[in-house]
């Protein structure tokens, strides 16, 4: 179980961070998902942990996403800026997300900017589209596995994925296709 969790925790954190755009919320989500998996399913076979963890994680992300939206609505109602990593008013959490990260010798500024740009676009997607896209394109799950993780039908996954790809293509085309050609 330890090695399984060690293998999925970073990606789980990124998925949660893209959804919530808040570091603390993302860490809470990952911890919650880990706790639920260990408490409820540690006796299951290791081959079942992956799909179970995906389902738990997506469920916790949905809950966290809703809580985050409600909190932000109330913060805006009281004239305060939405929550994020940035503490100063008006600071974009997406801009500061990787500010404390040590990029290392290989990872350069252009890559950080690319990641930030991608995160921004992904975060703006409706949550279901975001989940469908990340599970299918990044995690490499099949449509059926994605549907199980999201708790919806396979048809819904295809619809969400198609819309997500369309938005990404429109919004990233100029930036990405130019930089990758």
């Amino acid at each position: 179980m330890d090695s399984f969790l060690a293998g999925v925790e970073q990606r789980a954190y990124r998925l949660a961070l893209i959804a919530t755009s808040n570091r603390e919320d993302a860490l809470d989500i990952v911890q919650d998902a880990m706790l639920r998996l260990v408490k409820r399913y540690s006796e299951r076979g290791p081959d079942e942990w992956g799909p179970l963890f995906h389902r738990i994680l997506q469920s916790v992300i949905r809950d966290g996403y809703r809580r985050s939206r409600v909190r932000n609505r109330w913060r805006q109602f009281f004239g305060r800026p939405p929550e994020g990593d940035g503490e100063s008013p008006g600071e974009d959490p997406l801009e500061t997300r990787f500010a404390s990260a040590d990029p290392g010798p290989v990872v350069g500024l252009a890559q950080s900017q690319t990641i930030r740009e991608l995160d921004k676009v992904l975060h703006q997607l409706p949550l279901r589209q975001q989940q469908a896209f990340l599970l299918r394109q990044w995690e490499g799950l099949s449509v059926r596995q994605t549907a199980e993780a999201m708790g919806c039908s396979e048809g819904s996954v295809k619809t969400h994925l198609s819309r997500a790809v369309k938005v990404l293509r429109e919004q990233l085309k100029e930036y990405w296709l130019e930089s990758t050609t």
């Binding site: 970073q10 990606r11 954190y13 990124r14 990787f98 404390s100 990260a101 040590d102 990029p103 290392g104 990872v107 890559q111 950080s112 690319t114 990641i115 991608l118 995160d119 990340l134 394109q137 990044w138 790809v165 990404l168 293509r169 990233l172 085309k173 990405w176 296709l177 990758t180």
Partner: peptide, 17 residues
């Protein structure tokens, strides 16, 4: 585009502080 997105997401996983 999708390949580039995937590559970027993979890289983002490696840049966690």
């Amino acid at each position: 585009l999708l390949d580039a997105v995937k590559t970027s997401l993979d890289q983002s996983e490696q840049t966690l502080d």
